[in-house]
Amino acid sequence: MSETSKSNAQQLREAILSEDLVVAPGAVDALTATIATDVGFDTVYLGGYATGAATAVTEPMATMTEMSDRAREITYAVDVPLVVDGNAGFGDPAHTHRTVNHFINSGIAGMHIEDQVYPKRLHYHEGRHHITDIDSMKTKIEVADRARRDADGDIVLIARSDANRGNRRESETIEDAVNRVNEYLGAGAEVGMLFPRTWEEMEYVADHAEGPMTFVLSDNYDPRPTTEELEELGYGMVIYPTAAPVVITKHMKALYENIRDNGETGWNPEEYGDLRTYIEEIIGLPDYYDIEAASGKK
């Protein structure tokens, strides 16, 4: 089977299982996903934090349909594997089954489900993590695995554990967290996701997880390994869930402050024009010019 005839999920699965690290920058929308692919990335990630921020609410309040609708916009715009945050399945096992079906129909290649309680607590952002017991999460993974098979769909199922995060570090060790992920992998997940907070924990995860692992890199947390270091440790994928919304916010805030304080944007006209042209090119505007011209509507 040629690479072009493989589904995006098949390509993602094979890439994660290979010796090369899958690098998936986080997108906020179809435009940022298109920029990511244009500069050379062959996998993109859509997180709950980015979607919650873009809708001016917050990740725990982002709904399943908001996530799947945004994912559909991205998969329409780019033809590379998209990995999406599946929250806690957006409910109980029955809701999880429906979530998997929605995500498959949105054209995504992979999704992760976490062992936090649902509805997800807003205090999650302050480091207070409320998680379910292992058996409850295993049931969700089993149902998610069944859903993708029932739908005759292909999607990479990633199991995320929030054990050993924030307040949970007081009661659960990295060993406990790895044990949880291994249980989830045994229940039908193909890839795991944890949050080691030291280099030693990062190495422990790589050595003891019974499947490929995803590293979540946020620049306000340690450790912050390079892609080369993660590849050497044997991680399968790294995602950057919050970098895009943070950088966008920085530059948008500066722009609006400049208009407020100085009455102008402060942009160099040539650079501004070049960026507008770049946007138009990557979203395919020249192709539509050709269609209009061919139909006599130039």
Rank of each mutant, 00 (worst) to 15 (best):
N262I: 00
T132E: 03
N101S: 13
I108C: 02
L157Y: 06
D79A: 12
G296Q: 07
R160T: 00
A206F: 09
H97M: 10
P225C: 10
T96I: 04
L255Q: 11
I291K: 14
R70E: 03
E200W: 10
M252Y: 09
T277Q: 14
Y49F: 15
D79I: 03
T34C: 07
A9Y: 04
G236E: 06
L275I: 01
K138A: 14
A144L: 09
F195G: 05
E281S: 13
D154K: 11
G186N: 13
P212W: 06
R148L: 12
T139F: 02
R197M: 13
M193H: 07
Y288G: 06
G127H: 07
I134V: 11
H97C: 09
D222I: 02
N167C: 13
N220C: 09
D115V: 01
L194C: 11
G284W: 04
G236D: 07
E19R: 15
E73D: 05
Y76K: 14
L46I: 00
T242R: 09
G211Q: 00
D20N: 15
T227I: 01
I291T: 09
E59R: 08
G188C: 04
D207E: 14
V205D: 11
R180Q: 10
F215D: 01
S68I: 00
A88Q: 02
M213H: 08
R98F: 10
L17S: 13
R160G: 05
A243Y: 10
G89Q: 07
H112N: 05
D154S: 13
A206D: 06
E203W: 05
N8P: 09
M64G: 02
G91H: 06
T37G: 05
T249F: 13
T277K: 14
N105Q: 15
E114N: 03
Y76G: 05
L217R: 15
